[in-house]
Computed example of a mutant assay.
Amino acid sequence: MSIWISKFLFPALLLAACVPATTGGGSGASVSFLNGEIRAVPPSGYCTDPRASHDSGQGAVILMGRCPGKGAAVPALITVTLGAPGSSAVLKNGAKALSDYFVSPPGRAALARDGRPGSVRVAKTALSEGALVLRVEDRAVGGYWRAVLGLKGRLVTISVMAPEGASLPEEAGREILERTMASMRAANRSAAAKPAATTD
């Protein structure tokens, strides 16, 4: 589990660091990735930035930010990472196994911007309609929310963090995460793979 999850998470963190708080010329409507297999629909007030996103054909990193002119939306960076076909099989190990991995040194190293487990603390874990939700505290980027779920057989992570130089209240970040999960599930009409066990 540890090796390929590390490969899955790290590119998303690097790309997220490059995205401004407000996207330029992004789209709040559906944008297709992976040859049309997955549709990305951001929550209301946010737009997908196709220019900053990356689609390899096997996986994708989709970046979203506040739409231009949407001053009422809380500034936030939303990163949606799509794994390879069949990658959601890791969820069959159950939420407890996945949660245990992320709080372990290898899991915290996978989450850390600098790759060091001591740089990250997993402050909270929870389940939300089958998705594993983590509150992560990273020395490099501060606190942010991350969800791990399955869509159409692909492992998907969704992260919500504050833009550089801004703050994002914890409750607001969690709300944006939940709204993003809901919009992605609705757009793809696919129930997320549900882990078999609960977490504390």
Rank of each mutant, 00 (worst) to 15 (best):
M1K: 08
M1W: 14
S2W: 15
W4C: 01
I5G: 03
S6T: 15
K7P: 02
L9G: 00
L13Q: 06
L15N: 03
A16T: 06
C18D: 14
V19A: 11
A21E: 08
T22L: 06
T22D: 07
T23Y: 07
G24R: 13
G24C: 07
G25R: 14
G25Y: 13
G26L: 08
S27D: 11
F33Q: 05
F33K: 01
F33H: 01
L34F: 13
G36F: 11
G36E: 08
I38P: 02
A40K: 13
G45E: 00
C47D: 12
C47A: 15
T48E: 08
P50A: 09
R51F: 14
S53I: 07
A60N: 07
V61K: 03
V61N: 05
R66W: 06
R66N: 07
C67Y: 03
P68R: 13
K70F: 04
A72Y: 15
A73R: 05
I78P: 00
T81Y: 02
L82I: 10
G83P: 02
A84K: 10
G86L: 07
S87A: 12
A89T: 13
L91F: 02
N93T: 12
N93E: 13
N93V: 13
G94L: 05
G94Y: 03
K96H: 06
A97Q: 15
S99R: 08
S99T: 09
P105A: 15
A109G: 05
A110T: 06
A110G: 06
L111G: 02
R113F: 07
P117Q: 12
G118Y: 10
S119A: 13
S119P: 01
V120W: 11
A123M: 12
K124L: 10
T125K: 07
T125Y: 03
A126L: 02
L127E: 03
L127W: 00
E129W: 03
G130L: 05
A131K: 05
L132G: 01
R135D: 09
D138N: 02
R139A: 11
G142L: 14
G143L: 12
Y144D: 02
Y144C: 03
W145E: 00
R146Q: 15
R146K: 13
G150E: 06
K152D: 02
G153M: 01
R154Q: 06
L155G: 03
T157I: 09
S159Q: 13
S159V: 10
M161K: 15
A166Y: 09
A166R: 14
L168S: 04
P169Y: 04
E171Y: 08
E171M: 10
E175D: 14
I176M: 00
L177R: 04
E178R: 13
R179Y: 00
R179I: 01
M181W: 00
A182Q: 10
R185T: 06
A186Q: 11
A187F: 05
N188I: 07
R189Y: 07
A192K: 02
P195Q: 12
A197L: 15
T198C: 06
T198A: 13
